[in-house]
């Protein structure tokens, strides 16, 4: 049955309104990044200003250590993602399949860590990292990120494994797999959507994080992108053109990752809601 045309129109109008609200700030930043000089405010409402220039972008790559920051961010984010996915995939499996002493308690403990705001963990974790002499190192930052992202990832993967019938790996073990082979050849491929979500979550945690990075990293050469961005903002003047251009560039990788993984994301989020 087709719905009345008026209803469709209203529905689309409301959706467009929300898209507008969501997209406006991004477009505004894009517009600022294309303005010549350092103009934050302008009476001009056009998206691409009359005298548009990519000078800010060029300056980022030529006069600023943007590429170094990009490299730093990629290094940290990719390593955090890898560690997160590997640890969460095996940890979640153990929680889902094995019954061991302390299982209930550990799961509850993992859940409990999610109740504290991340800022609260800042001080104790910083002291920990300082005592390990890991301040101003990427390793220190990665430990920080992995430690905060992992509990959620483990919990998430456990939920995924729970939706995979145990008889599948039992069949595999009878077919000749060792326990680990059954995990690798049968369970992991089926948990792919879960792995993708976990990877995405780990990546995002590391990629866009500012506060922790600001504590751990202290040299400008070591900065990750969010820190680099912030460094354009000084107490007296702010390089708005650079700031905006860098913001746009920082969000591009995330957009690419999201779009390319969206297929898994949707199937992942709906998995378990449908009876096989």
């Amino acid at each position: 049955m087709r719905e009345p045309r008026l209803l469709t129109a209203v529905r689309h109008l409301v959706l467009l309104l929300f898209v507008g609200i969501a997209v406006y700030p991004v477009l505004n930043v894009l517009s600022i990044s294309l303005r010549p000089g350092n103009r934050l405010r302008s009476t001009d409402l056009s998206l691409i200003p009359d005298n548009a220039t990519i000078a800010s972008y060029v300056q980022l790559f030529t006069e600023q250590p943007f590429l170094t920051w990009l490299g730093n961010s990629l290094l940290v984010s990719v390593l955090v993602t890898l560690t997160g996915v590997v640890l969460a995939s095996v940890g979640g499996y153990a929680f889902s399949r094995f019954r061991f002493v302390g299982r209930e308690f550990s799961m509850l403990a993992i859940l409990t860590t999610q109740m504290f705001p991340a800022t609260m963990l800042l001080l104790p974790l910083y002291i920990l990292i300082a005592k390990l002499h890991l301040v101003n190192t990427f390793i220190g930052l990665m430990i920080f990120y992995t430690a905060t992202a992992l509990p959620f990832c483990v919990w998430q993967m456990k939920g995924f494994y729970d939706t995979i019938p145990p008889s599948l790996e039992e069949a595999a073990r009878i077919d000749g797999c060792s326990r680990f082979q059954a995990f690798r050849l049968v369970i992991l491929p089926l948990a792919l959507p879960g792995l993708v979500i976990t990877a995405l979550f780990s990546f995002m945690t590391a990629w866009s994080e500012y506060i922790v990075a600001a504590q751990v990293l202290q040299e400008r050469e070591m900065f990750t992108l969010p820190l680099g961005l912030k460094s354009f903002q000084a107490s007296m003047s702010t390089e708005w053109g650079l700031y905006a251009a860098a913001s746009i560039l920082v969000s591009i990788p995330v957009v690419i990752v999201f779009v390319s993984l969206s297929r898994y994301l949707v199937s992942g989020l709906t998995l378990g809601s449908v009876k096989e």
Binding site: P165, S167, L168, E170, A171, A172, R173, I174, D175, G176, C177, S178, V186, P189, L190, E276
Partner: peptide, 20 residues
């Protein structure tokens, strides 16, 4: 002995075919 080494085959109630 591990199930793999017992030289048995099993048919499950829910078939347990590998979906991938």
């Amino acid at each position: 002995m591990a199930p793999a080494d017992r030289d048995i085959a099993m048919v499950f109630q829910n078939y347990a075919l590998y979906p991938h």
